[in-house]
Nucleic acid binder design. Sequence first.
DNA 1: TACGTGTGGTTGAACTTTCAATACCAGCGC
DNA 2: GCGCTGGTATTGAAAGTTCAACCACACGTA
Lengths: 190, 190
Amino acid sequence: MDDVRWLTDGEQEIWRAYMTASVEFSAYVDRQLRRDSGMPMAYYEIMVRLSEAPGRCLRMSELADASLFSRSRLSHAVAALEKNGWVHRRPADADRRGWICALTPAGFEALAAAAPGHVTAVREHLFDVLTPEQLDTLREIGRAISSGLRTECDTARAEDAAACEAGDAERGTAAEEDGSDDPRGMAGAC
Amino acid sequence: MDDVRWLTDGEQEIWRAYMTASVEFSAYVDRQLRRDSGMPMAYYEIMVRLSEAPGRCLRMSELADASLFSRSRLSHAVAALEKNGWVHRRPADADRRGWICALTPAGFEALAAAAPGHVTAVREHLFDVLTPEQLDTLREIGRAISSGLRTECDTARAEDAAACEAGDAERGTAAEEDGSDDPRGMAGAC
DNA sequence: TACGTGTGGTTGAACTTTCAATACCAGCGC
DNA sequence: GCGCTGGTATTGAAAGTTCAACCACACGTA
């Protein structure tokens, strides 16, 4: 019970610095998106993932994994996006349990309109304030934390995740056309 | 309009690594707290701040600043904490606009019970997976981002924040006694 | 073919957060 | 004192998230 390895003062300092920055930064970015584009960051995230996918559409479960959403959260979020006309659901043709979520032209436009402000916010408050070395380290830190979370009890999950790689079927019915100029979806938009 | 400095592929990689880790990590920590202690991380955060304050109490506005909550969010959260009996509000005696929020003995106990699991989660998934050099850099990264966010339009705020340092009045009516053993509140508990 | 199990996805209720509006009080100028 | 301006805190409604069922279908097995 009392063999807890409490944080030292130095660790405490690191922890607070990290948490504070992380909370402040994401609050800033989220407010920027809500204010300037009327969408929370979570929706932006979903639409970016869709925009990068072949045909600008993904199965719900793939979209959930890509955007780190729980299935339930994604269902609700997609329902809201659909109400906005930014996204559209249709049944998957190979597996009758599944649904394909596709970005609509209006959704792509909304995303394209939101991206410049968002990217600018990220650049100014993340990339411009850190040195190249710090940025390198940040990438490594991110990787280390993420991979650390995929161990332990989750080991089981990690194991059968290895056997995974299918799922690229269906999706053929490509999203509605859209005379857009960006050949790679909205990649680069964060 | 098109002078947006889009992210390069390398920057994209850094951004994704950071965001992924940040989201996964905080989701993990939050779920750990909810599952094992029945409180969201936000509540834990509030109670830690209170536990560290002299007399284990703070004015609502000070608490909001300390925990990075908006005032409205804090009002709602404290209302919930109060319903749980973990916290208690009384009017500030010097300034009749203000309210003092105090940690109750039950609140302190709940915090003390939650801390070991939380600290362990943080240690195992943050401190144990990073090298000392990475941790040093993480602290600097945090500081750089936070201070970068306190410039620009917020410059005004930063200015009058300098003139601030009062606010240590009232608070005398110290929180209910509590035969606890930890002399420094719950500092070290993250 | 029928059954049991597991996956994909949705739903409703409870909870949390945001946003805008409100009430209340302090401090200042007159 | 009186009105003004600004700070402190709360409120209610709307939006978003979590949690625990739940339904429908796929797949393996008998």
